[in-house]
Simulated scan of single mutants.
Amino acid sequence: MKKLFSIFFIALFAFLSAQDQDSKETANRFFYELTFKPKKDSAKLEKVLTVLDIAKDRSVYRDYTVIGQDSIIKVQVEAMQKSGVFKDLSKTIRMPKFSEKIVKHYPDMKVQYVERIASGFTPMGIAYNETIKFDWKISNEKEKIGPYNAQKATADFGGRKWTAWFSTDLPFQDGPYKFSGLPGLIVKIEDEGKNYSWTLQGNKKVQNWEELSYSEKISNMSLKVTDMPREKFEKTFSDFKKDPFATARPMMTQEIMSKTIPGMDGTIGDMMKKQEKMYKDFFNANDNPIELTYSSTDKKKK
């Protein structure tokens, strides 16, 4: 039962990201509100809080949902460990809107794009690397964005036309998602069709910053990320989205599928079906990617 407990606990957090470092340092955390259009054929917009953590030798961009719930998850997990009774955490925590993590390595700004998939029941990281040279056209136009004096710049990226506002008040040549390369931090950026728009909402210093969240640590995720060419990454991740439990299903006998775990509603088979639906609902919620094309193969993103 303990093994099955860990299996489903790991599976629950398979969307979360991980990295091969766990060092404590100080980071500057910038909070961006992302307004986006998840469905390309709909005008409906959604919002999510994302963060850009800028440390000494790298920055890390991701959905803030998981980080923001760390303390809640810690309380729930410690209660389960104390009682020895499994609890379905999907009932009490929110899943992120976006599962990717983007690491920019300083000073060359090499980008590593990381996603989580499952190998059997064990989460594993897959990633591709790229060095992006944004061809920014800096304008003389200036504007106040929140408390910051900002200047306008435009560039084409991923099949979309982008307008950015950067501020030299914040001396970081970085920004949300993959964006970087301007003489100050990007405080606002959106594409021409307003499918994706990031606006800086605030920032703070994070002492003893660690790249791994609490949930990543206790779910025993492998810290190793497998780098691969982007085309292979796209195919691997696409296959996972179509059938998240493809590698796990052969391991599950009928006897195992019919078992129950104290504190869980239904059988292990029921839990697998529920989690499979959770995965598919997550991936099907967005058919309007940030990047419509990618330069490495000049093919449409699938």
Results as ranks from 00 to 15, higher is better:
250 P>K: 12
195 N>F: 00
94 R>P: 01
19 Q>C: 06
283 F>I: 06
277 K>A: 13
186 I>R: 05
126 I>N: 07
27 A>W: 07
80 M>Q: 15
84 G>W: 08
66 V>A: 07
43 A>F: 06
187 V>L: 05
271 M>I: 06
75 V>L: 05
17 S>Y: 08
67 I>F: 05
81 Q>F: 10
243 D>P: 10
14 A>K: 09
270 D>N: 15
168 T>L: 03
2 K>C: 10
16 L>C: 14
158 G>K: 10
242 K>D: 09
291 E>L: 02
222 S>A: 03
240 F>T: 08
232 K>E: 15
286 N>E: 12
236 T>N: 06
202 G>F: 02
258 S>Y: 02
256 I>F: 15
194 K>L: 06
232 K>Q: 13
185 L>M: 14
70 D>K: 02
279 Y>W: 14
194 K>R: 11
216 E>I: 00
254 Q>C: 00
110 K>Y: 01
138 I>W: 06
171 P>I: 07
257 M>L: 15
198 W>D: 15
216 E>M: 03
144 K>T: 08
92 T>A: 13
132 I>R: 02
163 T>D: 03
292 L>S: 03
154 T>P: 01
204 K>I: 01
21 Q>A: 09
43 A>M: 05
20 D>Q: 12
218 I>A: 02
226 T>V: 13
179 F>H: 00
52 L>R: 03
185 L>T: 07
254 Q>R: 10
106 Y>V: 01
275 Q>F: 09
248 A>V: 07
121 F>A: 13
55 A>H: 02
72 I>Y: 10
120 G>V: 04
294 Y>M: 00
37 K>Q: 15
94 R>A: 09
174 D>Y: 00
285 A>F: 05
5 F>N: 13
93 I>M: 11
193 G>E: 11
150 A>L: 02
47 K>P: 04
27 A>H: 06
85 V>M: 13
111 V>R: 09
105 H>M: 08
20 D>T: 06
212 L>I: 07
176 P>Y: 07
81 Q>S: 12
3 K>H: 11
94 R>F: 13
95 M>W: 07
272 M>Y: 11
222 S>Y: 01
135 D>K: 13
123 P>R: 04
293 T>A: 01
11 A>I: 14
57 D>G: 15
79 A>T: 11
228 M>Q: 15
175 G>Y: 00
137 K>W: 00
98 F>K: 08
121 F>K: 06
37 K>T: 11
218 I>E: 02
18 A>D: 06
298 D>K: 14
94 R>N: 12
274 K>D: 08
158 G>L: 08
93 I>E: 04
